[in-house]
Amino acid sequence: MNLVVNGASRTVREGASVADLVAALGLSRSGSGIAVALNGEVVPRSEWSRALGELDRVEILTAVQGG
């Protein structure tokens, strides 16, 4: 299944969830310090079990130096 993750295409297994994607990227499973938007909507951590779909656009954000 193909996704667009932070602007780059990425393949994950069929039926993968938001949590699976976060783990595959080597990010903390607790999700501390990161937030996920799926097709322009925030996905709260409590809903990371949600399954991803073909060509979903996922943004995974964290805090950086700024302002």
């Binding site: 995974i60 954000l61 964290t62 805090a63 950086v64 130096q65 700024g66």
Partner: peptide, 17 residues
């Protein structure tokens, strides 16, 4: 202290947090 929100860089070591 303020921080900004940007796409994660999985290669980045150390965090402002």
């Amino acid at each position: 202290a303020t921080v900004a929100l940007r796409r994660v860089d999985t290669a980045q070591r150390g965090s402002v947090l």
